[in-house]
Design a protein around this nucleic acid. Structure first.
Ligand code: SF4
Ligand code: SF4
Lengths: 153, 153
DNA sequence: CTTAATTCAGACAAGTTTGTCTTAAATTAG
DNA sequence: CTAATTTAAGACAAACTTGTCTGAATTAAG
């Protein structure tokens, strides 16, 4: 997994907010959790992190909920990723070695740095708005497919 | 983390074997664990997996140990990765959605598939031999830098 | 003011990964 | 055969991630 589950969920919620028309008003976490098929309590915890980091604002009480703290075109996916997973993604070694740098390369350095910067570029260049627009236009999903069909015979 | 720690360790050990000249003889796991700075017991467990999967062969007793089951140029990194982490890497969604496919794309599908295939290509095209040669030629490391300098003031 | 709705905070549980340890089995050397 | 060495197997523990739950604080509405 390139991102933690918490981070996945945080991104889905942020995109959900950006894709929902009402960018101005608050959306309740329970509504989002239901729409995205996530645990309400768990999602709450994750969104609290995003609120603390200043990416969302929240309000309590009836009609309360959360919304993006800034316009959706001024928040990119990397903001969310770093708020939840930290900068890990930016400087991690593919072999798990510590202190990754050009000065102390592992034998996969060259190739890995290239891939890694591709990933960070993707997150850096994708704003919530641009991705949300894609959702609105096409048939892209933010939720799991049919609930697991149970395993075994 | 794109790979589990177990997988990281397995790759390091496999590369260590490929880079050690004595491709024919057995190298003891304790020697490898010491050289790579890994837990002996944990590395043992990981290499048992690789042995079970037929990528290495082992023998007990004095002068026992493990060696690659096939020539180092006929094993690629993907073999190791799949043996330890399974095919997860090949078909996982960047948003953690289930059933990733062109038919059920998330809004990052196009870009992610491109990156993901870059990763799989890297592992598929890198043989243990090619990477081991790089180690022999240049100054690439397979071990962590100086043991963590302890944190805090 | 009272009540309901909602986030906030944090304890707690469950699950997974990582790491340690002990014992058994196999192999080699003498 | 005996003893030493080494992997195999698996129990167990520790750490981390994920998920659940309860209660407090805040806000809005009547
Ligand atoms: S060498 Fe490549 S893989 Fe190793 S630490 Fe540096 S970037 Fe990461
Ligand atoms: S759309 Fe992209 S990210 Fe989503 S499942 Fe398919 S590949 Fe993964």
């Amino acid at each position: 997994m390139v991102l933690s589950k918490s981070c996945d969920y945080g991104l889905r919620a942020a995109l959900f907010l950006a894709a929902s028309e009402r960018e101005e008003s608050f959306v309740s976490i329970s509504e989002m959790a239901k729409a995205l098929g996530l645990s309400f309590h768990f999602l709450t915890k994750i969104l609290q992190t995003l609120t603390r980091k200043g990416l969302m604002v929240s309000t309590k009480g009836p009609h309360g909920g959360v919304r993006l703290a800034r316009p959706a075109d001024s928040i990119n996916l990397m903001d969310i990723v770093i708020a939840i997973d930290g900068p890990r993604l930016l400087n991690e070694c593919v072999l798990g070695l510590n202190g990754c740098s050009d000065q102390h390369p592992c034998p996969l350095h060259r190739q890995w740095v290239s891939i890694r910067s591709g990933i960070t570029e993707l997150f850096n260049q994708s704003t919530l708005k641009s991705v949300a627009q894609r959702i609105a236009e096409g048939s892209y999903r933010l939720i799991d497919l049919i609930e697991e069909p149970e395993k075994k015979v």
